[in-house]
Design a protein around this nucleic acid. Structure first.
Ligand SMILES: [Mn+2]
Ligand SMILES: [Mn+2]
Ligand SMILES: [Mn+2]
Ligand SMILES: [Mn+2]
Lengths: 215, 215
DNA sequence: TTTGTAAATTAGGATCGCCTAAATGAAGGG
DNA sequence: CCCTTCATTTAGGCGATCCTAATTTACAAA
């Protein structure tokens, strides 16, 4: 296992590779690697038994590949908690450095870090932290953009992308904070939100990447 | 810069490459890489301006190479403090995992870790932690094995090698602890030490790797 | 059914960091 | 000063991972 192979597995997982076939194109895009190189690596990973590869169709993770992806996500999210809680990192900084730390986090380290942090259930961006046995507590969520004007809910998760994270943090958006959609601009216009009495405007695109409780 | 190039620079530094020329043989040994491969890499690193390479003579670090080596040592030792102080690692475990963490520790991270740890001066094994400007507070030390029977001093540092660390920690040897050499076995025989009233026997080889105050 | 388009694969190469085996240089003892 | 020995370098290769360009396949619209 090398850091880049780990990233292949992790990204395939994030693209839904635990349930369905993921196309090479998407993998090439998120990893910023030429499609031809992705084909090559996928064949190698399938020979290693980490994923099922169907030429011209796509790939999905095997049990072993899934295990590696989840272990990686666990390390990533635990580090994010540490970096924000104890070192004063911002949302995007924590995500950035955790991207590297995740690759050198053997079970001994993630286990002790987990204990030190008092077994956090979620990363600072709201994603569930897998347990050491690979179990993940999922919560059903829907994008904020699906709420109708006047509807209220609680922000539970935001997508992890540097620019988005900096944007949302500068707006003062917080995980588990209450939100009410005051108004929705027409033609994918901005949404006006009420956060604990504070009025905040967010773009339609950002609202697609913010998740709130379902129902 | 890649992790292995960083390790070349770090090991050259530890072999004295900041002051004198270091031979390829030694570098090959500590890195467990074939001498031919070392030659090749040294030439590459010299083209990158990180060290001065004199064929058949040896190498010494340039200012830039030294900077990288010291930054690496700083990250390594700060992580060791964190791992032992907060995660309950042993001497050898801390050294092992820090070996990996050091390579993914940008200044932002080491700076904040340093602050979180309240600016420790030494790693758990007694080596000085370089400041962020590269400054290192040296203390003059001599190996314990140089003490005469009856002489007393304080243990300030131990060499960082897995087996040695496990051995010394199992004996209850501690940095900054008082030590008196009770007796010295003949012909490189074991030393009997008095540690705060406790009698402990250590091998000659180990006594070569334990450092106490000079004079 | 044909065909255009996007996705995927194949072919051919480059670079990096490592290896073994063979050749060469340096340096001290005789 | 020569020779032995050990350190070092050179030569030739290998596997991993990435690339570009060319070709093939899949799929859906016409
Ligand atoms: Mn990563
Ligand atoms: Mn996160
Ligand atoms: Mn290292
Ligand atoms: Mn140390």
């Amino acid at each position: 296992m090398t850091p880049n192979k780990e990233d292949y597995l992790k990204e395939i997982y994030k693209l839904g590779g635990a349930e369905k076939l993921v196309g090479n194109k998407q993998i090439a895009e998120v990893l910023k690697i030429a499609p031809a190189s992705v084909t090559e690596m996928l064949i190698k990973l399938s020979h290693e038994g980490l994923l099922h590869y169907e030429p011209y169709k796509g790939s999905c993770l095997t049990k072993e590949g899934l295990q590696i992806a989840i272990t990686l996500l666990r390390g990533h999210r635990l580090w994010e908690v540490f970096l924000m809680r104890h070192l004063g990192y911002s949302w995007s900084e924590a995500h950035e450095d955790a991207e590297l730390l995740e690759h050198i986090t053997p079970p001994r380290l993630s286990g002790r870090l987990d204990k030190f942090l008092n077994y956090p259930a979620y990363c600072p961006h709201g994603s569930a932290i897998p347990h050491s046995d690979g179990q993940i507590d999922r919560k059903p969520l829907r994008p904020l953009v699906q709420l109708a004007a006047g509807e209220s809910s609680h922000i539970r998760k935001v997508a992890e992308e540097k620019e988005l994270l900096d944007y949302l943090q500068s707006l003062g958006i917080e995980i588990d904070g209450a939100v009410t959609v005051a108004s929705i601009g027409p033609y994918e216009g901005p949404l006006m939100l009420d956060l604990d009495g504070r009025q905040v405007q967010v773009s339609h695109k950002a609202a697609c990447q913010i998740y709130v409780d379902e129902r």
